[in-house]
Amino acid sequence: MKRSTIDLWVGLFVAIGIAAMTFLSLKVANLTPQSGSETYMLTADFDNIGGLKVKAPVKSSGVVVGRVTKIELDTKRYVARATLTLDKQYQFSRDTSAEILTAGLLGEQYIGLVQGGDPDNLASGDRISLTSSALVLEQLIGKFMTSFAEKGTQDAPAKTE
């Protein structure tokens, strides 16, 4: 069995293939959170999660610190419970607050964490108690419309007087 140029080409071909797949998994997809670094879990209850999805990022001051790994409905209190998986190197105090934010006007929703002042940190499995729900556009518009209408009814008689 001799080595031939065909072997060289096929070897190169396979190497290119492996390189392409590595590029796709590392640079295009986001392999990093699962890759080795240890994580811990927190839960947070929200009255309304809006369009939040599993895999949505969890950010603190804009830095991605983890991801939403589970969303379920707590059937006792009827609130949404999101499970967040965070990188172990980011620790948060017990009075940290979580809110559901939107990237841009119509963008993707994510959870923002704001660090509190408590010296004790949240441990794995703990619940974030300070939460604020997602802004639901319909509700927002609804509120806006009602307040507009109320204002209108207040204004109207004023003019006729």
Binding site: M21, L24, S25, K27, V28, A29, N30, L31, K55, P57, E108
Partner: peptide, 19 residues
């Protein structure tokens, strides 16, 4: 460009399924 890509592309769901 890259971060939008990374935030929306899932390794298993998109890359592996495509392959």
């Amino acid at each position: 460009f890259w971060s939008q890509m990374q935030n929306n592309v899932d390794l298993h769901y998109d890359v592996v399924n495509g392959l």
